[in-house]
Write a protein that binds this DNA or RNA. Structure first.
Lengths: 258, 258
DNA sequence: ACGTCTGTGTACGCTACCGTACTTGATCTG
DNA sequence: CAGATCAAGTACGGTAGCGTACACAGACGT
């Protein structure tokens, strides 16, 4: 598999030698519509570095009723909590929401790589910190902001995760993910459309004006996005990104920048 | 400091030799009422192993308006996300809600210990997995269940965190934490009181019947509690528990300052 | 072209929860 | 003991979001 074709942003943050080791053990798979990558309360066979598409992680709140808790696109990894405890990811269900593809690797092999590839470990750890921030901020947002703002936040996060302004999902699916009525989504989307920030077609929402949308949204999105950028700065130079020097094994603590 | 007097449940899960190394670098401090252990967006100077009392972690949802995202008692650690990235914990504010005491250690020294004490690392990792589960489940719960159920969940989690049926907080504080009106808390508590599961005094709520309360609550609490027990089984023997460890201490990578 | 299916617009009554604010009761202070 | 302060109970109108339901429209297969 050609390393230079890897699109996953976490993988693109690790140096070429480690990247090769990882990619060698991966297989490229298609993420089919509504495919369940991980069932609720079952062991996780693979972890997936998403290359294209969108995967949602949802918590069970009732018999056969799930609400999304975080979102994974090409900036992330499906199954990251495995890195914290090999048996650590059973509360939630991972479902493909937008088809695409991913590099997948068997869980035990992934754990092995984490132990031998320090940059991979570091990137996954930092990604987990972002997920925790994103999830907790969204959770607070859920209990405080109205549906319109939460929908705006969701669309903006999805846009970042997919690197695409077009989000091919129906109102019904969006409603499920947000844990609200389908009709509420329709109403909110209409309002956003009136503001000129999005347009809708049957089965798809397109973000026309992200900047304006982000202004209409609550502050939660900006906090989440800033956190991602702070902990996982984008590598624009591909797999040859300059990588941070390993140093100061005694004290990796650093003071946050301004 | 006497190692045998350590009450923190995470510390009690690591073997005696590691425990001594940790405790040697800690100082025992009092957690005063309404004390802010970590301000929003500022570097974290210390991490705290809570020995008694209750600390809440809250996300900013508006100018000077915060909503709780998770809860820490003697079963946990204030500042755990530091273990994922030394600069990883700035989105939220940590406030003492119930006075008590804690063992605190300077952040850089904590990071150093993580790299040299594999059992400590393992316990903290697993605790982080629990926090992620708890936070995400609560977030979903926030957008789906009514105030009464969320209050019941909160009380049960607080009870586990404090190991005490008496939760010395006013309705006003509970309302702040849940992100709802003070009057709504009064109403819900009254309902729970009618059911005979709790009693209230001025400035305090006592759980009279945890089993029944947990039945009235949504399923979210049970999921959260089960996850804690699964990943961090209680050590009745003090310090001889065996949890899996990472094979390689490391992770000194720092993000390039931007 | 046809019926069929799935997605979207819209409506209606209902309830949980909100903002506000006033009253009563408990605790502290001088 | 008197007065001040803070917690808790209660009330009331307003509304966001709910469940349900139905009609219409774009897409699709035969």
């Amino acid at each position: 598999m050609l390393v230079t074709q890897v699109k996953n942003k976490l993988l693109r943050l690790i140096p070429a030698d480690e990247l090769c080791r990882v990619v060698d053990m991966c297989e490229r798979v298609r993420l089919g519509p509504r495919q369940i990558l991980h069932h609720y309360m079952l062991p996780m066979e693979y972890v997936y570095f998403v290359e294209r598409g969108l995967v949602s992680v949802a918590a069970r709140v009732e018999r056969e009723k799930f609400v999304e808790v975080w979102l994974i696109g090409s900036e992330g990894l499906v199954g990251a909590p495995i890195a914290l405890a090999a048996d650590a990811a059973p509360l939630h269900r991972r479902t493909v929401q937008v088809t695409g593809e991913a590099l997948r690797i068997k869980t035990p092999e992934f754990c092995g790589l984490l132990d031998s590839l320090p940059h991979l470990r570091s990137v996954v750890d930092r990604y987990l910190a972002v997920v925790l921030g994103q999830t907790s901020q969204s959770g607070a947002c859920n209990s405080f902001h109205d549906i319109r703002q939460r929908l705006a936040r969701w669309l903006l996060i999805a846009r970042s995760a997919m690197d695409d302004n077009e989000i091919p999902l129906t109102h019904g699916v969006l409603a499920e993910l947000l844990g609200v009525r389908r009709a509420s989504v329709t109403d909110s989307l209409e309002a956003l459309q009136t503001d000129g920030t999005v347009t809708t077609r049957r089965g798809s929402v397109k973000i026309e004006n992200p900047v304006e949308l982000s202004r209409l949204c609550c502050g939660c999105f900006k906090l989440i996005e800033r956190e991602y950028r702070r902990l996982l700065p984008a590598s624009d130079t591909g797999s040859d990104a300059r990588l941070p020097v390993r140093s100061q094994p005694q004290s990796p603590w650093m003071s946050p920048d301004s």
